[in-house]
Design a protein around this nucleic acid. Structure first.
Lengths: 146, 146
DNA sequence: AGTGAATATAAATTCAAA
DNA sequence: TTTGAATTTATATTCACT
């Protein structure tokens, strides 16, 4: 259900001027998908939609694409308690760190880059574990298992 | 006051993760500019800032730049009561109309393009007058007085 | 997991004022 | 015109339930 709804939401955002979640709710209801505003709030967050003034917009590619630098230069990812460690190709850590910072990942307290290593301080151990799991999947999925 | 504040807001949005207007208010207060959330709500609207999830962002250029098509292809602009008329170079009306639609101008009820003419139905006569005044300035300012 | 109902929080607007 | 105080409106979150 959620998947179809997300697809329909993207279609609607693209084609009609959507001002509020309540309006979006009505548009979906007209198409037989009845959900509450709470659900749409979550959907919008998950889809990464942005609001400019009184209108929802699709995010630009730059907002969602994984910087190629990250996929190409990160060779290892681990964590201990609430600190995540990126291992990068020699000399790449600074650049990767800048690209990473630009992604505004949630629950990141701060980052520190050396030559080939980056420390990422997360809010909690739970956050670090979740991050490594999710981000590892993203970053290594394009390169096969290495 | 407002102008400086706008400049400072842009600088802050660019450099610190700004999640709420209240947080922005505090950041400004720290720098000696004391205003209320109501004022910041207006500022953000005027600056065209966008919110993605829990963070304010600067708009992409595409969101604020005038599509070159418009500046290059519109040769006349007029209105009567609440309908605005664009005169375009021959065959350009459809393309210009699409570009114009993409700008999501306020108070536009609907648009209709022929070959070299576009009708834009505005909400009211006042809106049409204001639009012609503002948009005319924008669109003809880059070409000198013609 | 995904959801809705109720609630908390954030943001936009109204209205009076300078 | 620009602003703040109060208010309304919109959105995010909590909690219980499936």
């Amino acid at each position: 259900m959620k998947k179809e709804r997300h697809a329909l939401i993207l279609e609607l955002i693209r084609t009609v001027k959507t001002e509020t979640q309540e309006q979006l709710r009505e548009l979906l209801a007209d198409r037989g998908m009845t959900v509450t505003q709470a659900t749409l709030s979550r959907d919008i967050s998950e889809l990464g939609l942005i609001k400019q003034g009184d209108r929802y917009l699709l995010p630009e590619k730059r907002d969602i694409a994984l910087p190629p630098l990250l996929a190409g230069s990160v060779i290892g990812l681990d964590y201990a308690v609430n600190t995540v460690v990126f291992r990068c190709k020699a000399g790449m850590a600074m650049a990767v760190c800048a690209a990473f910072d630009g992604m505004h990942y949630k629950n990141v307290v701060g980052t520190l880059a050396g030559d080939d290593t980056i420390f990422v301080l997360m809010r909690s151990e739970k956050d670090a574990a979740a991050f490594v799991k999710d981000f590892g999947t993203i970053i290594f999925s394009e390169k096969g298992d290495e």
